[in-house]
């Protein structure tokens, strides 16, 4: 290979990196503009109450089984692990306190968020993506209906409102899972376990988890809608949009969880 060929190759690498960076920046710009338009649409009339109600059922109510099941097993495993770990220091009595703290602050919202991301972000992206490729979104425009207001706002509102409720339910079930294992297998007395749980948890612990849940709900609905609206081509495009919606909402949930924890517990 001659000198100039080497140079060309290196230039190619730079071109590749440059193009990737430009694509990323363009994507961030598109997402920011989409978010801005969605937020603006939330506060401007009309409000589609019926649609918000429908989405509340789809996003919130129908997610209860998955969230409940995962919370139950998470609480149970947590109790078992803390008991075994604590046992090494003779600190196994701390199970109820750690379980309630871990569940309300961290695992409740994050696990509910990840489960709902898998269920709901995918469903939203697939539905809106299909509407996009079959021109149904264009049809909305020709029928004097703003697609953002009609499709995005109800999903955002329903997700932001239902995620804290789902998380509260999940928290309770998770604590119950820990309680069951502790009482059945680990020799705790039920009343003492519950008293320790209630005494230890503060409302700040619970609230921080619910605030996180609301943010996760926003991320899930936004990612589902954004990728759906930007899906291209036919079935393949919709499939890609669905995958991207789930992956990006999971990543954003975990990243924002760190940031939110830092903010909420900095004071």
């Amino acid at each position: 290979m001659s000198r100039s060929d080497h140079l060309k190759d290196r230039m190619n690498i730079f071109a590749h990196i440059g193009r990737a960076v430009m694509d990323l920046l363009a994507e961030i710009g598109r997402l920011a503009s989409f978010t801005g338009r969605s937020l603006a649409a939330i506060v401007s009339p009309p409000v589609y109450g019926r649609l918000i109600g429908q989405q509340f059922v789809h996003i919130g109510f129908l997610s209860l089984p998955v969230v409940g099941l995962t919370a139950l097993s998470t609480g149970a495993v947590l109790a078992l692990q803390i008991y075994l770990g604590g046992n090494r220091y003779g600190a196994e009595a701390i199970v109820p306190q750690i379980v309630v703290l871990a569940i309300t602050r961290e695992l409740g919202p994050v696990i509910a968020g990840l489960m709902v991301a898998g269920r709901v972000a995918a469903a939203i992206a697939a539905e809106i993506g299909t509407m996009k490729v079959t021109e149904q979104i264009d049809a909305l425009t020709t029928l004097s209906t703003n697609p953002i207001k009609y499709l995005v706002v109800p999903r955002l509102v329903a997700a932001v409102l239902s995620m804290p409720i789902l998380t509260a339910v999940g928290d309770s079930i998770g604590i119950f899972g820990g309680y069951t294992v502790a009482v059945q297998n680990l020799g705790f007395t039920g009343s003492v376990y519950l008293k320790n749980t209630v005494d230890f948890a503060t409302s700040a612990d619970i609230m921080s988890g619910l605030i996180k849940a609301a943010v996760f709900g926003f991320i899930i609905a936004l990612m589902g809608c954004y990728h759906g609206f930007n899906s291209k081509g036919g079935a393949q495009g919709v499939g890609a949009a669905t995958t991207n919606a789930v992956v990006s909402s999971c990543i954003l949930i975990l990243a924002s969880d760190f940031i939110l924890t830092a903010i909420l517990f900095s004071a």
């Binding site: 079959t134 021109e135 149904q136 264009d138 049809a139 425009t141 020709t142 029928l143 004097s144």
Partner: peptide, 13 residues
Amino acid sequence: MRKFGMLFQGGAL
């Protein structure tokens, strides 16, 4: 937009 009506290729129902 109220002046317009449109029939889409695939129906877009």
